[in-house]
Design a protein around this nucleic acid. Structure first.
Lengths: 195, 195
DNA sequence: CGAATGACAGATTTCAACATCTGTCATTCA
DNA sequence: TGAATGACAGATGTTGAAATCTGTCATTCG
């Protein structure tokens, strides 16, 4: 057994730990290397830059956090109900991450607004894609009005920004927030409905 | 004529100039006093604190910026059209301020998330109140479904957060933004409509 | 030979001494 | 007498020198 093989996977796990411990502002590549008992030069053999490392960690984290959503997308069943549960699950997951995993959440938000943050863009496109799939099902089921499915998905995503965009994270502890999401959902459901 | 009477109005104007010149991070009460040719102690005779001064300036600025909206609220005419124009006017005004008056816009955003920022809260309540008035007209005209008007107004306000909340200001230069607002508007109009 | 090292240059961050600012108040001024 | 002043203490911000970090690469190691 090659005890000492340094794998990207190991590095990512160590980076995640270091980020959680020190936060994105303080965490250094030297810290990561120290946690692994190697020189920091070794880390650069596997990741081109500190930024690339942070992005890779964030990508894994996002994938894990939102796996549940893909499940709802793939389900059969009434589209309206699935859309409702999808939006709730997205909000719940985001809020939980913001509260339970603040340092990785901060790492994610720091990535936003970065020039050429492919990871965040891809993540958002994935989410809108999942929404579009559910909306398309709804149209096929005859419960949603025929429309440009992609545009409708985008509109739903933007109309619920208050409940998933990290720039609103501070508002998520407001006790009215759950009721607010339901109110917006009622409006959107009505807006999408076939008549 | 009492040449040297120091009025709150003068102080507010001078503060606005200083904020525009130096930005909220650099502007000091000493700067304001210097601009007026008085000692900074005099400013504290009229405003309890630097924070109070900033809030007063911001309040005036918000009132001026959104006077147009009150006009649309007070109009007669089809509620759906007025609601559409009100949302467009809000977005246009916000975006213009963010671009043309960045330092005062920054002063405003800095006020958000401050503990006990009465000014921002009042401002938001005013806006939701105006929305509610238009929605109520729509219900009276029979074009909007009967509903809890206040809750519906709040939902519309939150569903359009992407287009008026300062935390989204960076996204407002995206060329798709106008189309996005129209798409969300279409959804909301449908959602409010009587059937 | 490929993986790891550690020394290195330039960029960034820390830290502590210093300067400025905020808010108060006893005093001055008109 | 009420508005304005300026000196002051404590808080906050600035600055530049020292420490640390990022990213590279010639060298070592297995």
């Amino acid at each position: 057994m090659t005890e000492s093989a340094l794998t990207p996977e190991q590095i990512l796990r160590a980076t995640e730990d270091v980020l959680r411990r020190y936060g994105p502002a303080k965490a250094t590549v030297v810290d990561v290397a120290r946690a692994l008992g190697v020189s920091h030069g070794s880390v650069y053999r596997h990741f081109a830059s500190k930024a690339a490392l942070r992005e890779a960690v964030t990508e894994r984290w996002l994938d894990r956090a939102h796996r549940e959503l893909a499940g709802i997308t793939a389900e059969d069943g009434p589209a309206a109900d699935r859309l409702h549960r999808w939006l709730l699950a997205l909000f719940t997951a985001k809020r939980r991450k913001a509260l339970d995993d603040p340092e990785l959440f901060a790492t994610y938000t720091a990535l936003i607004g970065q020039t050429a943050s492919t990871v965040v863009e891809r993540h958002l496109e994935t989410l809108v894609g999942q929404l579009a799939a559910i909306v398309a099902d709804g149209v096929a089921q005859g419960v949603f009005a025929a429309c440009d499915v992609r545009a409708a998905a985008r509109a739903v995503f933007q109309a619920t920004a208050r409940f998933h965009d990290p720039c609103h994270a501070a508002e998520w502890t407001d006790p009215r927030t759950d009721a607010d999401l339901e109110a917006v959902w009622a409006l959107l459901l009505n807006g999408l409905a076939a008549r």
